[in-house]
Simulated scan of single mutants.
Amino acid sequence: MRLVQVAQRAVDLERAAGFYADLLGVAPTATFDPPGLVFFDLEGTRLLLDRVAPSAYLYLEVPDIDATVQRLRAAGTTIVTEPHVIFPHEDDTLGPAGTDEWQAFIEDSEGNTVGLVEQRAR
């Protein structure tokens, strides 16, 4: 079984689409308005921005959490939590053994919290 789609609340669809296009570095794959839906492809999993969806916590893997947070801060994004180590991976249960899991949290254009994650070698 694999995750196919995640829906996220988008009060202002155009604003949210712009925010996620910048964050993800890709354009939407489809827009249907009405009824108010924008889709992004995240390597085979769809991110659906939906006017009537509830807020969800999204955690997105980034290659360099510090650079990503700096870029987003410069663009005016609210940084909720600065990059920090959440936990070390001693085995492969939740991430590559011998790495530390770094996370930071931002607020998207719609007030949803989004987690950024980097697996960093010690």
Score class of each variant (00 low, 15 high):
Met1Arg: 12
Met1Tyr: 08
Arg2Met: 08
Leu3Asp: 05
Gln5Lys: 10
Gln5Phe: 05
Val6Ile: 15
Arg9Trp: 14
Val11Tyr: 07
Glu14Asp: 15
Glu14Lys: 12
Arg15Pro: 00
Arg15Phe: 01
Ala16Glu: 01
Ala17Gly: 13
Gly18Lys: 06
Phe19Tyr: 09
Phe19Val: 05
Ala21Leu: 02
Ala21Lys: 05
Asp22Gln: 14
Gly25Glu: 02
Gly25Ser: 11
Val26Met: 05
Pro28Val: 13
Thr29Met: 11
Asp33Phe: 07
Pro35Phe: 06
Gly36Ser: 11
Leu37Ile: 13
Asp41Gln: 09
Asp41Tyr: 07
Gly44Trp: 10
Arg46Asn: 11
Arg46Thr: 15
Leu47Thr: 03
Arg51Val: 14
Ser55Leu: 05
Ser55Trp: 06
Ser55Thr: 14
Ser55Tyr: 04
Ala56Glu: 13
Glu61His: 14
Val62Asp: 05
Val62Gln: 04
Pro63Trp: 08
Asp64Trp: 07
Ile65Phe: 04
Ile65His: 03
Ala67Ile: 13
Gln70Ala: 15
Gln70Asp: 15
Arg71Leu: 08
Ala74Asn: 09
Thr81Ala: 13
His84Trp: 05
Ile86Asn: 06
Pro88Asn: 15
Pro88Leu: 04
His89Ala: 11
His89Tyr: 15
Glu90Met: 07
Asp91Met: 10
Thr93Asn: 11
Thr93Arg: 12
Leu94Phe: 15
Gly95Cys: 07
Pro96Gln: 14
Ala97Ile: 10
Gly98Ile: 03
Gly98Glu: 06
Asp100Phe: 10
Trp102His: 14
Glu107Thr: 14
Asp108Ile: 00
Leu116Phe: 12
Leu116Asn: 06
Glu118Arg: 05
Arg120Ser: 02
